[in-house]
């Protein structure tokens, strides 16, 4: 795994989560800014998945390969599903859905880093 990319993804996801919470607190519906940010996050997660798959194919994977693949698949699936689910709700609770995804991604990427480094 690439440390800087993973760190960037974690930071971006947390920023998205906080902006989403703020949007919910201000009683606003989803804006385009959040959607675009979510799209950028998804692109980054796809790139990370690509690098991971390439590394696994080369046989560089950690002991917990299956778990790592599970987390990887989860991170790629969550942002688009959250976007779909959040956009459908034109109230303050739309961005709240995005916040849930925004907090889930850092946890999952963090766990992937731990698995990759063999510290968990």
């Amino acid at each position: 795994m690439i440390g800087p990319l993973a760190t960037g993804l974690i930071v971006l996801a947390l920023v998205i989560a906080l902006v989403s919470l703020l949007t919910t607190a201000m009683n606003k519906a989803m804006g385009n800014v959040l959607l675009i940010a979510l799209g950028v996050l998804e692109l980054g997660l796809l790139v990370q998945a690509g690098f991971l798959i390439a590394a696994l194919v080369r046989g560089e994977g950690p002991a917990e390969t299956a778990t790592l693949i599970g987390y990887m698949a989860g991170t790629v699936v969550i942002p688009p599903v959250a976007a779909f689910w959040g956009v459908g709700e034109r109230s303050r609770w739309g961005p709240a859905v995005i916040a849930v995804a925004g907090f889930a991604i850092p946890g999952m990427v963090g766990r992937m880093l731990q698995l990759w480094q063999g510290t968990a």
Binding site: G70, Y71, V81, E89, W93, A96, V97, V100, A104
Partner: peptide, 25 residues
């Protein structure tokens, strides 16, 4: 399933994914 219910659905969905993947492995 609307309003705050949407958030509940999102959280339950993520937990189903997390717990399900973990259990499968």
């Amino acid at each position: 399933g609307a309003g705050p219910g949407r958030v509940l659905v999102a959280v339950y969905g993520i937990f189903a994914l997390a717990a399900g993947a973990r259990a499968a492995v």
